[in-house]
Design a protein around this nucleic acid. Sequence first.
DNA 1: GAACTGTAGATTGTCAACAATACGCGATCA
DNA 2: TGATCGCGTATTGTTGACAATCTACAGTTC
Lengths: 230, 230
Amino acid sequence: MAAPEGMFVLEGRPTAQLIADQLRELIVQGAFSPGQQVNESALASQLSTSRGPLREALQRLCQEGILVSKRNRGVFVLELSADDVKEIYAVREAVELAAATTLLDSDAEEVADTCRELKGIIRSMAKQVAASDWQAIARLDMQFHTSFVSGTGNTRLIRIYETLAAESRMCILSLEVAYPRIDALVQEHQMILDLLETRDRMGLQGAIKRHMQKAVEDLTSKPEVTGISV
Amino acid sequence: MAAPEGMFVLEGRPTAQLIADQLRELIVQGAFSPGQQVNESALASQLSTSRGPLREALQRLCQEGILVSKRNRGVFVLELSADDVKEIYAVREAVELAAATTLLDSDAEEVADTCRELKGIIRSMAKQVAASDWQAIARLDMQFHTSFVSGTGNTRLIRIYETLAAESRMCILSLEVAYPRIDALVQEHQMILDLLETRDRMGLQGAIKRHMQKAVEDLTSKPEVTGISV
DNA sequence: GAACTGTAGATTGTCAACAATACGCGATCA
DNA sequence: TGATCGCGTATTGTTGACAATCTACAGTTC
């Protein structure tokens, strides 16, 4: 029997992963300060679960890198240094360049699907820029790039990028309202989209490299990269 | 007080990670068949630990991708398809290309350190080829590439690559004694080393791409990619 | 004989109590 | 006055037991 429309297995994924997703969203939104300790018992109560599942979720986020664990001490929210920012964006560049290559080697219609998605995200982004909703802008920024990588269909590449996206949002969080050159942001993404549509391989690669390089400059120019300043 | 030489914090890393490392080594060595279910209680007893830490270790390996978890069913050893092989090597290519770029942009002495390390690995590899120890060859093969990426010093890139290395060893495992063109293997690694030493950027990139492409061909040419045939 | 239903077994998911460890504060001693 | 030692507290690490869920097999009905 085929699964009826609108009906799907309830919570097919492991519980720990659900908790982890929830926590990740909280962290990248800045609900915890960098370096802050995450108390197991307290969080378990708040999320109305037990320490077991929560521990597994925390450990998951440790592996992703947005939490760090110290034995017999507990887990702490990652503090980002300038070196971390450079690392993250270096890996992002590698992944996106690979994604670009894969995309341009694939069928035109698949690329078209991705472009359609990206176009919608840019539209939303422009809207949020007008509203100056920085939290939303950061989310859409990463959503753009995640969709770009998702276009490859390479599940491993996508999974890697999701982690990078979370870390990037933590980076951007430290910039806060000081998202520099806000109009350039939409413009740069639009350019990447255009180059993808016109299948300009060299141009696309160059645009991605520049996009990453500028991001690192913006993020590391600030004296304190790691503080939250809500 | 500075830590005395030769003395370091005992088991500074979380227990689950130690168990995970142990299990990963067992899996990539083929101690479990692909698709086989991993029983929590049984394994916990064997490793003389409790189910709690073991669960965390299993979950860790799930996140890495060499185990897959089905809710209320348990965890199973990953079964590799031809598509998986393509994915893995596509990501490896992306990571190694990025590593090559970073390495060639860095100081000459750092590159020299890496080259020294790689040279030693190739020497060991040649020795094991003579002895036809396939398990050791596979380990050295991945050790070579892992060292290559480690040369960049990018901890995130390194962590990503360690996962890929584990998956690659699982791929190679299915090839078993049929490591094709065994002399070419040493030769190809030697060439990568030479191109790194002479800082031939284009040549190195090309060599890496060819190396990966050939590996995929070797691995997918076999009718059954997923079976173990000890 | 085929399909469905109910039960049995096994395995995972969750929980709460216990043990071990590290940090912070106060007392002690040089 | 300064450093060191010891204790108390808080937090994590671990364990075993209990509950929930799924698969497989047997029994029943059409």
